[in-house]
């Protein structure tokens, strides 16, 4: 928590100092921001709340908590902050206002917006962690576990070759297995667990669905292979660890970007999350006989390896 807060503060200060506080407030006076949420469930509302709290009062924020119906009138704004894919699709289709898409994965952004960049100004703050960060995290948290198992749907372009190289650069081995049909999921899982030290979950909803997660976690636990996930929910369910960015953290980064937009009238390039959370399940670690460092220590090791020039 404290580290997260510190980083958030650092980021805010960085942005604030970089562009200068006084002109910002002047510039911000005229800025109207429309926040469009994909729906009114907790993660989006949390985002919206934190986002508003982190903006100076001068920036005028309107929030659409639900996507309007058939022929909506989108309120006038200078910038739309679309939260989630649904909101981003909606905003992209309904308005030519510059748009910052937040809380969407990189593939989602690329798939939907690459062709529209000329039509209007558009950028994003991704939800997913860059591979380099994920792999640095694995190495820092589990230096002994070098064989990284990965299950994926074959038509999901995750760039196996590139990933293989990145893992090899860190002294590990990628054991990847495509899952071609639902029927072979569990045999494939058994195969991969027999040859891996870690099972790395990816957001492939066909494999890591809420109905499969139970058996994936139980089987991997029985085989003594820890699962590393990408949300707090994974860790709560029984994954050993996860690295992710919370809606609050994304909202902080988004508000900083909006403040910068208020000054520069220009959106930056799409960015990965600047801040992230490390969650660990110490009970699972203990039970599997894995000696985990604290989240702070893991973060320090990651900072160091990043500093080594990767």
């Amino acid at each position: 928590m404290s580290i997260r807060k510190k980083l958030a503060r650092w980021l805010l200060q960085h942005v604030l100092l970089g562009i200068g506080l006084v002109p910002l407030i002047c510039a911000a006076e005229n800025l109207r921001v429309l926040v469009v949420l994909s729906d009114n469930s907790a993660p989006y509302l949390t985002f919206s709340k934190t986002f508003s709290q982190n903006l100076p009062a001068a920036i005028q924020v309107t929030v659409l908590e639900q996507l309007p119906g058939s022929s909506p009138d989108v309120p006038q704004a200078d910038l739309i902050v679309a939260v989630g894919m649904k909101a981003s699709e909606f905003a992209a289709a309904k308005s030519v206002t510059p748009m910052l898409a937040a809380m969407i994965p990189r593939t989602g952004y690329e798939g939907l917006f690459d062709k529209q960049r000329r039509a209007k100004e558009i950028s994003a703050i991704y939800l997913d962690q860059p591979w380099n960060r994920q792999l640095d995290f694995l190495r820092a948290a589990l230096p002994e576990q070098r064989r990284i198992g990965l299950l994926y749907s074959p038509d999901m372009n995750i760039g196996i070759a590139g990933l293989q190289q990145k893992i090899a650069d860190r002294g590990g081995v990628l054991i990847a297995q495509p899952v071609r049909s639902a029927g072979v999921l569990f045999p494939s899982l058994e195969d991969i667990l027999a040859n891996s030290d870690i099972l790395l979950a990816i957001p492939d909803s066909r494999i890591y669905s809420s109905s499969n997660i139970r058996n994936i976690l139980l089987t991997s636990y029985r085989r003594g292979v820890p699962l590393v996930g990408f949300s707090q929910a994974y860790v709560n369910a029984g994954a050993l660890a996860a690295i992710f960015t919370t809606p609050e953290q994304l909202a902080e980064q988004t508000s900083a970007t909006v403040i910068s937009f208020a000054k520069l009238k220009q959106l930056p390039e799409p960015q990965y999350p600047a801040i992230f959370t490390i969650a660990l399940n110490l009970q699972v670690a203990r039970s599997l006989g894995i000696d985990l460092n604290s989240a702070e220590a893991i973060r320090k090791i990651m900072d160091k390896t990043t500093g080594e020039g990767r």
């Binding site: 939800l127 997913d128 999901m156 957001p203 809420s210 997660i213 139970r214 029984g238």
Partner: peptide
Amino acid sequence: NVWATDYASEQGYIQEFPVVL
């Protein structure tokens, strides 16, 4: 197909799971 679209969504990141272990 369906899962490729889902992959490009944030749902996987925000879905809740029961406590398994």
